[in-house]
Design a protein around this nucleic acid. Structure first.
Length: 429
RNA sequence: GCGUCGGUGGUAGAGUGGUCAAUUACAACAGACUGUAAAUCUGUCGCCUUCGGGCUACGAAGGUUCGAAUCCUUCCCGACGCA
């Protein structure tokens, strides 16, 4: 993997770059489509590509449970398995420590509103009897499968082994995503753990890399079949790291400035190929956390803001030096009937759209907008037709990917701040 | 014409003397969703309300009862059976 910064924002930490992977280039800042179970829900790879998406992110925990990482390995890796010829990433399962752990069955998620003050009370009350599917142990995390109830113990080593089997171009260290509701003492404890796990992830990664380079030799034959289907993403794979993915370390630290900076210092000092910025945020804490971290992380390596994705967040992240984003929102909102427009989100099932024969966005160039009306898409949703989620996901993914692309271009044109102001002024809610 | 069964809120369909403005499902309406436990979830869903409650309602009209969607009578409508 190779990362090159092409241009920097004059004010702020933002930059434009290119990330070269064995399966093609990623033009940063870039939006990564989430394909948790080796599929971007409701879309086939051609449809994903048509939205302008360059890279897809799968999930370690989900693919380990089903179909199993060895099957994905034997299929030729996640990209080949899912017929996605471009770059791929896998998340480590660290988010599931959170979503299936403390957040399980609760009204907390990746970005938590502070409307419920009890969520932010700075104490870790004893709710050990609360049902959860993930429990943090001495060495790793025990998960109770949401599919069949079986118990699985995931350690940093295990996560890296699974990810090597899944075979993405970029993988992540195993971490603990913490809730903003946790108190400082717990954040500190969790951060220590994430740091130890980072070192262990890195060590296991290097070990597996060495084992692979010993047995490498005929690998290039295998990979020549996996080149991107005609398009600019085609690039000669780099020799270094060819047989081994790039590993990103993850910065945590919650909302505390000292912890965030400490984490950025520590993770940034390790021999990672890039970095993830993790954590569950209260919305207003996000920008400061990102800034604290990116002022410290080594400038020449890429940074991925994990799980973030609303338009205003993308501007914030890019301005503060983020190169990669992934988020389930475009596809999840799409499937659930909410569509992005430059004037804000709309709920397509609302009565007023039943007889609205204009496209979702008049000047949008996505497949859905070029071919269908709001009335028709509303009809598909009311009728619970499968095509509904597909058309909506195409539009939303196109909207977000293209927004990031436009922001990228605005930096190249020295117009970032004008563009940001203009966009956010029109975009409401 | 006689007999039997049945008529419940937008629909289907519970309820068969008080705890019933009426279970439930669907539809409708509004909302939520940020490293996917998610094609999911939440709220509203007779009228009015100062959110305490008030009013009108289970085909129609009478009646029994402290009290009726629930029991009785007649009528109207529907299905089936016999003529």
């Amino acid at each position: 993997m190779f990362f090159k910064i092409e241009k920097k924002l004059k004010r702020g930490l933002g930059r434009v770059g290119v990330l070269k992977t064995p399966h093609g280039e990623i033009h940063t800042p870039a939006f990564v489509a989430v394909g948790t179970k080796a599929t971007v829900k409701s879309l086939n790879p051609e449809q994903v590509r048509e939205t302008g998406t360059e890279v897809v992110l799968g999930n370690t925990y989900h693919l380990y449970l089903q179909p199993g990482d060895e099957i994905v390995r034997d299929a030729g890796g996640i990209g080949k398995f899912m017929n996605w010829p471009g770059p791929t990433m896998t998340d480590s399962g660290g988010f599931q420590v959170f979503s299936l752990g403390v957040a399980y069955g609760k009204d907390i998620s990746k970005v938590t509103k502070i409307t419920d003050p009890s969520l932010l009370i700075p104490e870790r009350f004893d709710d050990s009897d609360a049902p959860r599917l993930a429990k943090i142990g001495q060495d790793g995390v025990s998960f109770k499968s949401h599919l069949d109830g079986s118990i699985h113990y995931i350690t940093p080593e295990k996560s890296i082994q699974i990810q090597h089997n899944l075979g993405a171009d970029i993988i992540f260290a195993f971490d603990e995503c913490t809730s903003p509701a946790e108190d400082l003492r717990y954040q500190e404890e969790a951060l220590e753990r994430t740091h130890r796990w980072a070192e262990r992830s890195l060590k296991e990664h290097k070990k597996l890399g060495e084992e692979k380079s010993f047995s490498a030799g005929s690998l290039s034959v295998l990979d020549s079949t996996a080149l991107p289907l005609g398009s600019s993403a085609c690039e000669t794979p780099h020799k270094e790291n060819f047989s081994s993915p790039a590993l990103f370390g993850i910065v945590q630290g919650g909302r505390d400035e000292n912890l965030r900076k400490k984490s950025a210092e520590f993770i940034g000092s390790l021999d990672f190929d890039g970095f993830g910025i993790g954590g569950s945020f209260a919305k207003e804490d996000m920008s400061t956390a990102v800034k604290w971290v990116n002022e410290i992380l080594p400038e020449e390596k890429p940074r991925h803001l994990l799980g973030i994705g609303e338009p205003e967040d993308l501007f914030m992240g890019i301005e503060n030096g983020v190169d990669l984003f992934d988020c389930v929102l475009p596809t999840r909102l799409g499937r659930n009937g909410t569509l992005y427009t430059k004037r804000g989100k709309i709920i397509i099932m609302n009565t007023k759209f039943r007889n609205d024969f204009s496209p979702v966005e008049e000047d949008c160039a996505c497949y859905s907008c070029k071919n269908y009306t709001k009335s028709y898409i509303a009809h598909l949703f009311h009728g619970k037709e499968m095509l509904a989620g597909t058309l909506a996901s195409i539009h939303n993914l196109y909207f977000i990917v293209n927004l990031v692309n436009k922001i990228r271009q605005s930096i190249l044109d020295d117009k970032f701040f004008e563009f940001k102001e203009k966009f956010l002024k029109e975009y409401t809610r």
